[in-house]
Design a protein around this nucleic acid. Structure first.
Ligand SMILES: [Mn+2]
Ligand SMILES: [Mn+2]
Ligand SMILES: [Zn+2]
Ligand SMILES: [Zn+2]
Lengths: 142, 142
DNA sequence: AGCCAGTTGCAAATGCTTCTCATTTGCATT
DNA sequence: AATGCAAATGAGAAGCATTTGCAACTGGCT
């Protein structure tokens, strides 16, 4: 709670510095994003944001998410046949494992894979700018 | 040319065996798919298929692609903000590098990465069913 | 307090993909 | 070769997530 408040102020600062106004609606969306521990989509964020400020419209959620994405504050994910999902970009880079039975999203990180990807790109004459790695899995039956 | 003809007949056989009728339209779409050396989207496949059979409709392209996908004959890819792209599933598994400047798609395969992915899933208590790995790159300036 | 470009809500538009339905067709059977 | 019928087709409508146009509002700076 304390930290998420600081987080929100930090995010608001980033916006202001980027010449973006911190409106009532954006403050609500930022708070929701900072508090989120999952990977909500726009309509879920809208539902949550309305609890703070009932006037927030879905358009503004989308517009704000796009703005935050451009500022590098938020990351957008497009998992297999699903609507776009979002998370704040404060945590260090990680990839996702999706439980194809429940839809649960689990984060992981493999430095080896990260390195191999850069090597592959280099071998092909490219610089790796970003990547997408998603593991679609089923819980192991033991 | 010779091989692609055989490939088409092979594909038609797979369809027939799966209880799917081989229509004029589907034959055209299969031929186009077998000949394709890139990763065309539905509308591009439609454009190409019409050169063989002008009556093919975009609806049928989509319907046929879905059918072929279910039969495991075709694979669908959803690259970053782009329409779905397709390729036949006869080649061994590989992942893709996308040139973010030109849109070019380059195929690659890393057995190390493939193995690491399975290991990561296992460590988290899951069986890896399928995955998606895309490298978004820029050509190296030397 | 006053200004004004940035922001908003709403509704309409967008773009890809899927669906509906009347009509046609593949193909197994005579 | 003719028949029967479920599967497949074309055309357009519908679906759905996301974006956009616009008139009204407002954050943040004088
Ligand atoms: Mn995450
Ligand atoms: Mn490929
Ligand atoms: Zn990664
Ligand atoms: Zn792979």
């Amino acid at each position: 709670m304390k930290q998420s408040k600081n987080r929100v102020e930090e995010l608001e600062g980033i916006l202001r510095d980027g010449g973006v106004r911190v409106t009532r609606q954006r403050a609500a969306i930022l708070k929701i994003l900072a508090e989120a521990e999952d990977h909500p989509d726009a309509s879920e964020l809208h539902r949550r944001a309305k609890e703070i400020d009932a006037t927030v419209s879905l358009s503004t959620v989308y517009r704000t998410l796009s703005a935050l994405e451009q500022q590098g504050v938020v990351q957008r994910h497009a998992f297999e046949n699903a609507t776009a999902r979002f998370e704040t970009a404060d945590a260090p880079h990680h990839d996702h494992l999706i439980d194809i039975e429940t839809g649960a999203v689990i984060e992981f990180r493999s430095d080896k894979i990260e390195q191999l990807q850069a090597e592959i790109a280099a071998e092909l004459g490219y610089d790796l700018v970003r990547h997408r790695l998603e593991l679609y899995c089923r819980k192991r039956k033991d």
